[in-house]
Amino acid sequence: MPSGSLLLQGVALGVLTGGVYALLASGLTLYFGVMRVVQIAHPAFLFLAAYLTYALNTAFGLDPLLSMVVTVPLFFVLGMAIQRYLIARLRREDLGMMSVLLTFAMAILIEGLLGLVFSGSYRSVTVDYATRSLDIGVRLPNDRLIGFAVALVTLAILFAVLRFSRYGQALRATMQHRDAARLVGIDTDRTTAIGFGIGLATAAVGGAVLALITTFFPAAHYAWIARLMAIIVVGGLGSVSGAAVAALLLGVVESVVLVSLDATWAGLVFYLFLFATLIFRPQGFFGGRLAERF
């Protein structure tokens, strides 16, 4: 059994990591909630953004957080284009299945491109403030704190936009009933495309955070696919706030298991929660009816 201070340290790290998980998974809830699209390529886009952050950092000395000024708009436009020219062409009836294939192809494409341009070597962005930490009884590493803050801000903006803006209303209407939304004058195609764009824009933010806290290589995205999927299923597919709560919960449980048991068990946490969710509450532990989910 770990000591009290170690356990406390584990919880603190878990909360910070959970915040980052919430950010990384937020795009996935959007794609699925809005479009019923399962986006396997989301982690690949995260690492694409991390590599762009790395490139901007090495070429111009740009701080990872500042590089979002470039990557976020870029990913937003890219996301709209992907939705408009690729996803929108899939048949509505088998969208779930076909989107898995399509986006998996994208993931492999991105991995290959990254390998070609950046080689298979490990890359990392080092800024001098990242490896220090805040000592308040437990140690809070600066890079995690920054990641957590960025996640908090991003999720707050996302939530506010979806909940309170006119666009958010249009998006929710599109989710509830596409045809009815069209009848009241909503351009559902445009709304959907913007939704996808926002989803991918979160990948740009997540990529910058990943670049700050971890090393990466082209095939790094595989480790994240199942983990992020588990988070959004536990959170209730399509619920941004549900995914955030699930991410925090899983982050903390994972970290506590890690400090008190070992790493192999900690890795299983995600899947145990996934199975429990599917058995006891298939709609997710935090999701309500689809219409109420934002």
């Binding site: 790290l13 990591t17 970290s255 890690l258 790493a263």
Partner: peptide, 20 residues
């Protein structure tokens, strides 16, 4: 004496155990 799986991406908690 810690062991972690190859897909481990976050080392802060393992490190916390070792540092402890």
């Amino acid at each position: 004496d810690e062991v972690y799986p190859p897909e481990q991406t976050d080392f802060s908690a393992i490190a916390a155990r070792v540092a402890d």
